[in-house]
Design a binder for these strands. Sequence first.
RNA 1: GCCGGGGUAGCUCAGUUGGUAGAGCAGUGGACUGAAAAUCCACGUGUGGGCAGUUCAAUCCUGUCCCCCGGCA
Length: 344
Amino acid sequence: MHVPERVELPRFSEHFLPCLCGPTGAGKTAASLALAARFPISVINADSRQVYRDFPIITAQPSAAEQSACPHLLYGYLPAEAKLGAGEWAREAAAAIAAERAKGRLPLLVGGTGLYFKALLAGIAPIPEVPAEVSARWQARVLAEGAPALHALLAEHDPAYAAKIHPNDRQRITRALEVWESTGRSFSWWHARPLPGPAYRPLKIGIGLSLADLEPLLQQRIKAMLDAGALQEARAALARCTDPEAPGWSGIGCAELYRHLRGELSLDECRALWLKNTRAYAKRQLTWFRADKDITWFRPGQAADIVAFVEAAPAGTDAFRTKPSGVRARPLSSDPRQRFNQSP
RNA sequence: GCCGGGGUAGCUCAGUUGGUAGAGCAGUGGACUGAAAAUCCACGUGUGGGCAGUUCAAUCCUGUCCCCCGGCA
């Protein structure tokens, strides 16, 4: 068997950071394995659900066999009760990137959580952690008084941010209020603070396809997860953490299986709801990543082109943003009828 | 075959005392600064089962036919 020659790391700029993003089920793991065969990479998880150790199957974490291809970091290391936020993840990811870099390896970010990529690559306001007691109180209030009432309250203290969000957006309203209460500064004040310049030179690689093309793949994947023991995984997780409100249980598939285990849903209903929610999620991811014009898009099965694309990234500065010739990347058109119809 | 209920958006249904109709879900597009697999926003023309009749006007009333569901045969 032909073993491809590995590329010397010094070819790349010191802060070079390839990133694989795209909707769930599009083949990011497969692409990362193709890259692992060519470069001395370490894969760093950028997915908010794949951090939970109780749900390796349901959250589609790379299997043990897949993880043996190269180091994989920040996968399956938290219990279901543990809460992880974008800022905390970004700190851990930055540490992992530095550590792998120091070992002479090339970090590769792989995941589908747009906010996590943004927090790491663009930075995030250095807001101190809000005490759980404070945030619990605001969450209780929004339930009791309704989001519009608290939005009006927010408008008194932080009119700029209140104007940016909708009166029904209870999550953002409570977040802004709890930050205001616990720090004495408005959410807008924190956002206005200058962030340090970019620490990385990302090469953003998207793997995308239309929702219509993705849907059958998602359906197959749910079946494969069930065949692989997703139900048993959920049952075992339930024995360890009985609180369905725990962060780990909020993943798509987990919540539906929980309801099936409680007898609220038949397995068929569970599967249908699971697919529906996964599809809606993939659509939101596509909306997020489509808006990022720095992403160069590929389709599933174009792993060889992705390898060539990374290989063609020039040494030195961020000139790699210029698309090398001979790479068959397909941009996402804004016209949905044209978007994925380019000939192969 | 008879009796009853029903045929309205892709699905489940609401409503109109006659003035050509609207919710939820689905779908599409979008937003996104520590729950982000989260949270939220915008977008609703459909031969109102077919035909005929009454009427200025029928999705609504009448007749008839077709189809579905339940019951009786």
